[in-house]
Design a protein around this nucleic acid. Structure first.
Lengths: 140, 140
DNA sequence: TTAATGCCTATCAATTAACTAAGGATTTTC
DNA sequence: GAAAATCCTTAGTTAATTGATAGGCATTAA
């Protein structure tokens, strides 16, 4: 019942790109170093994100990746679905008997509700290094 | 992001015991055959449930297992936690940066809310073979 | 005493996770 | 045109987990 590093690192990549949105391409090397991750591994994660049309690549020196759309139009659910597959707590939900099926559906919908209502803009704005502001609530 | 067969078969066991609550012990063999599962495998799943105090065993011929408490006092969350570990969408949630940490916490709380508010009584009553009643809503 | 059960430990094949390795293809800059 | 920086692709590797299977001992009702 865990989201693997695929989805987690994938979100990390997308948040970095969201922070640099409108500033030209960001290389995987930069993202890998900033987050202490393997560049080679990130290459394997961004390939499906590119195939799904969530990012665009610019090849060659001083190339990198940019978001295909503005950060407020891309959700955590978009990213997680590409890298982790469909959001569902069990395989073959339709084969379960009614009571359990309803349980899995309620869980699935609860997760979808959170993921599909959290955008890269939300995630990028909270990721900046900044002092707590007025109205800023600590996370627990 | 999946609940494995441990949690799923564990719930199956517990629902069967809930249906037979107050009628004496039910053997694993019975449950295994009714659900077309491996009895040996179920033995490995019920061991932690017994250690956690969710079921009691009665050894010897015509023995089996009974719930330690009434079905309305045992939740799906109790069962899943024993067999799948703590409910959390990622390991090391506290090490994440604020934006992602808050995302994982929202997902975790959404899942917990469903699992901890679904009892074996809820699950067992909907699992019986019965005609749709007044007020009965189909699941989709 | 025997059959039905729970209990325990070990083993195993398949899958997945999380990388690592190697090198080719493309583009910019000097 | 050469060199460097980047993307792109495929393949291999190690460890853990899943989902069992195997074999047999311990306990108890009939």
């Amino acid at each position: 019942m865990k989201i693997s590093t695929k989805g987690r690192y994938g979100l990390t990549i997308m948040i970095e790109l969201a922070k640099k949105h409108g500033e030209g391409p960001t290389s995987l090397k930069t993202i890998a170093q900033a987050n202490d991750l393997s560049e080679h591994y990130l290459e394997q994660l961004i390939a499906p994100l590119r195939n799904a049309g969530l990012v665009r690549s610019i090849r060659g020196a001083y190339g990198g990746y940019i978001l295909s759309d503005i950060p407020s139009k891309i959700t955590a659910g978009d990213v997680i679905r590409v890298l982790e597959g469909p959001i569902t707590p069990v395989e073959g939900i339709e084969d379960e008997e009614p009571a359990k099926r309803e349980l899995w559906i309620r869980i699935r919908d609860a997760i979808k509700d959170v993921l599909d209502n959290t955008t890269l803009e939300d995630l990028a704005s909270h990721s900046e290094d900044q002092e707590p502001e007025e109205g800023y609530m600590f996370y627990i």
